[in-house]
């Protein structure tokens, strides 16, 4: 490790020509990732970026780190083995919604459940882009695509709900167009011990243009999103004039100073609360009746698989004290033939 050296975004950038479509949200995510890595400061050679298959999964080629563009859906399993075998490395996994939640859904939930210390960037554009426009497991019910010409008849995964169902310890969300929040959540993800899931709402200019525009349009973004920061009041609106309050078992958006609500009624965000009940409520807000939450929604401590594994190996190795296979075998049942 070389903590004393300061790295810049350019140090994480490879010499490869970036082949995404002009205007694709992935360009912004890539640029922010370079900056976030520089801010965190782990050396490029101590960083690994592992992806599956899909447009977003091309990302490792554009990183001047150790990188592995693998096979469809398996990035989480490959990242798990990588991190356990070489825990000194900082590991980023790049997956799209199809790669991570359809073909790779099983590996995703088990990586999250084990709480492997990896950072999963889930680029969600609600479409299969590289195969030219089929609906994905995050496409809304009724979505019309080449493989659903009459609209889908299935409900989507909400990535946060899946992560919480798998006992996730870190979940954050950002819009591809919001570079500030995107960098903030990537840095927080890198600093979290355990599996960090970052959902990047990303726009596909070719096959799903404007899929997130209801929440991402600049004109209405302040009303339809809420930037959550741990320890701060849950306020939103152009002038932070609105806030979230508890309403029975649910949440409600109110205007400060109206209907008797004051700033004291507005909830303060607690990302570190062990119970994920409110985190889930916040993550499920979709921008319609309540603003969509961006920023770090949940960030709690829990045992980390690869650390527990190393601890266990160290403990049993110390207890038995074998220095070789031969020594281990000779400690068992053996006999001498002369």
């Amino acid at each position: 490790m070389s903590e004393d050296i300061k790295y810049s975004a350019a140090d994480y950038k490879s010499d490869q020509y970036v082949r995404w479509c002009p205007g694709c949200g992935d360009h912004a995510v890539l640029a922010v990732l370079h900056k976030a890595m520089a801010e965190v400061g782990v050396a490029p050679h101590d960083t690994a970026v592992i992806s599956g298959i899909g447009c977003s999964s091309r990302l490792p080629y554009y990183m001047n780190t150790y990188g592995f563009h693998t096979i469809h859906g398996r990035a989480a399993a490959i990242a798990t083995g990588f991190k356990c075998a070489n825990p000194a490395m900082t590991v980023w996994q790049i997956s799209g919604d199809g790669d991570g939640l359809a073909i790779g859904g099983n590996h995703f939930i088990h990586a999250v459940r084990r709480n492997i210390d990896i950072n999963i960037l889930l680029l969600n554009n609600k479409i299969y882009g590289l195969t030219k426009g089929q609906y994905s497991p995050t496409s809304d019910r009724g979505f019309v695509s080449k493989s659903s010409p009459y609209g889908t008849v299935e409900d989507p995964f909400i990535p946060a709900e899946l992560a919480f169902g798998a006992r996730g310890t870190f979940f954050a969300r950002s819009l591809d167009v919001d570079m500030k929040v995107a960098q903030e959540v990537m840095v927080a993800a890198a600093r979290h011990r355990g599996t960090s899931v970052v959902e990047m709402l990303q726009n596909c200019v070719i096959f799903n243009m404007g899929i997130h525009s209801y929440v991402s349009d600049k004109a209405t973004r302040a009303e339809r999103t809420i930037h959550l920061v741990h320890g701060q009041k849950m306020l939103f609106g152009a002038n932070n004039e609105r806030g979230l309050v508890q309403d029975g078992f649910g949440l409600k958006a109110v205007e400060i100073g109206r209907d008797g609500y004051t700033i004291d009624d507005v909830l303060t965000h607690d990302a570190h609360c062990q119970s994920n009940f409110l985190h889930q409520q916040l993550a499920m807000m979709d921008g319609h009746s309540l603003p969509m939450a961006v920023g770090v929604i949940r960030d709690v401590e829990a045992p980390v698989y690869n650390e527990e594994l190393d601890k266990q190996v160290a403990e049993v190795t110390a207890a038995k004290g074998y220095t070789s296979l031969r020594e281990m075998i000779l400690a068992g049942d053996t006999w001498e033939v002369k």
């Binding site: 399993a77 490959i78 083995g81 990588f82 356990c84 490395m89």
Partner: peptide
């Protein structure tokens, strides 16, 4: 699949 893939990750590592 995760068995072989995690091994591939470990090999790369």
């Amino acid at each position: 699949i995760a068995g072989v893939c995690s091994a591939i990750g470990a090999s790369f590592a």
